[in-house]
Amino acid sequence: MLDDRARMEAAKKEKVEQILAEFQLQEEDLKKVMRRMQKEMDRGLRLETHEEASVKMLPTYVRSTPEGSEVGDFLSLDLGGTNFRVMLVKVGEGEEGQWSVKTKHQMYSIPEDAMTGTAEMLFDYISECISDFLDKHQMKHKKLPLGFTFSFPVRHEDIDKGILLNWTKGFKASGAEGNNVVGLLRDAIKRRGDFEMDVVAMVNDTVATMISCYYEDHQCEVGMIVGTGCNACYMEEMQNVELVEGDEGRMCVNTEWGAFGDSGELDEFLLEYDRLVDESSANPGQQLYEKLIGGKYMGELVRLVLLRLVDENLLFHGEASEQLRTRGAFETRFVSQVESDTGDRKQIYNILSTLGLRPSTTDCDIVRRACESVSTRAAHMCSAGLAGVINRMRESRSEDVMRITVGVDGSVYKLHPSFKERFHASVRRLTPSCEITFIESEEGSGRGAALVSAVACKKACMLGQ
């Protein structure tokens, strides 16, 4: 009897593995994704193909990295998701002549009506938060230079001027797309009239992360975010950046690689679950690469896999709870928690219980395998993109072996128990001629924006502006 049951459990697990095998990517698959990513990057950089390229390769006008001589107080704003952060950054000489960066910050959550109302409502709310922060720190009387981390696709015309191309991540505030974001912020500050600010720089969160990590390690020339969304930036040779005049030196390019796949480059790798996630998203047909990796989508992918296993009578005796059938019910943090389970399955059992399920031991094991399959594919897909960037940098610099540091931020990278190990191992397999160091950014977005502002202020002083 026991043997029969054991055989049935083994057969069930084997069927589960057959279904989950769809998520496995072979090294040849990853090399294919990497080569296609490089081709799209090239198209994004070139003037004649930029418009139709899915990977936009947006110039950021960040050319210099901090040298350690900029000092002063800077205000930093960070808008990239449902939370908005205001930070005071003091850049100065530390002990023994070292450079020191001290920060104080406060988080504000953005109400739904500000995210989806008008641009005026959104930026009025942001300036209200700045006003509140300055009151708390008794700094209303000071006109501070301000660095703005704005983590949406922007076409820069200068370091302090950028046109919002399109909202992502659930934002829909009308009247912002096609307009200068810094102008919208300046107008809102003017409307309030109770404080003055000098907006000197606007950067993407990947750029802010790279600059913040450069402060720790001067070989950091790539910034990457794996959180709600997924994106990367890197220092490109100016001669390859056709959208900006000049051939000397390097400029940081914001790849906006989340949109890779929007022209069909990933079609052969998309599964039924991916198509369902895409169809029910706020932007169907867009940001397809990001939807395979980002935390906004990972939990939902797992939920759809679990429903398939229920329908195949391989999980929960073929019956799903009402909660499990509800879109968004299986949160991405559950994926991390399930994979963090120590082996007694308590954590998995508790999560499934909150979803109205009474799982068996085998159910718990199957749910864990589903989570591992989805998150491992995410790590491997992400590795193909980064390997594409790094191999490109090595080739354009004609280096036999390139040493490089990548600064990384984002909740999936930082909080998932195995993502970074799987990701690092896969990147290294795909970049055999590179020695890569990964560092995690601390308060990256805010500190990085302030350091970019410090560079901009120093330049302005040198130019006598």
Rank of each mutant, 00 (worst) to 15 (best):
D3G: 11
M8P: 10
A10V: 10
K12P: 13
K12D: 12
E14R: 13
V16M: 15
Q18C: 10
Q18K: 14
A21K: 02
F23Q: 07
Q24W: 12
Q26S: 15
E27L: 10
E28R: 09
D29K: 09
L30T: 14
K31E: 12
K39L: 10
M41L: 11
S54K: 05
V55C: 09
P59H: 02
T60E: 03
S69C: 09
L75G: 08
L75A: 15
L75S: 09
D78E: 02
G81R: 01
G81P: 05
K90N: 15
G94V: 13
W99Q: 07
T116I: 09
T116A: 07
G117I: 01
M121R: 09
F123R: 02
C129V: 00
I130L: 07
F133H: 05
F133N: 00
H141F: 05
S151D: 01
S151Y: 04
R155A: 04
K161M: 06
G162S: 01
L165P: 04
L165V: 07
N166K: 06
K169Y: 01
S174E: 04
E177W: 02
D187G: 05
K190Y: 14
R192E: 05
F195I: 10
F195E: 00
M197T: 06
V199P: 00
V200H: 01
A201F: 00
T206A: 01
T209S: 15
C213Q: 03
E216T: 00
V222R: 01
G223T: 07
G223D: 05
I225N: 00
T228W: 06
G229F: 08
C233V: 05
E236L: 04
Q239E: 13
E242Q: 03
G246V: 03
R250W: 09
W257S: 01
G258D: 00
S263T: 15
D267L: 10
L270T: 13
E272D: 08
L276M: 07
D278P: 04
E279S: 13
A282P: 10
Y289T: 14
Y297T: 06
M298N: 04
G299R: 04
L301P: 10
R303S: 08
L306Y: 07
R308F: 12
L309A: 15
L315N: 11
G318K: 06
A320K: 13
Q323R: 14
Q323A: 05
Q323V: 12
R325V: 12
A329L: 13
F330C: 13
R333C: 12
V335E: 06
E339H: 08
T342V: 13
G343F: 06
I351T: 12
S353V: 12
L355N: 13
T361I: 08
S373F: 10
A378C: 06
G385Y: 04
L386Q: 14
N391W: 11
R392Y: 11
R394T: 06
E399Q: 13
Y413Q: 00
Y413K: 01
K420G: 10
E421Y: 08
P432T: 10
C434S: 08
E440C: 13
G448W: 00
A450W: 03
V455A: 14
C457I: 07
K458F: 08
Q465F: 06
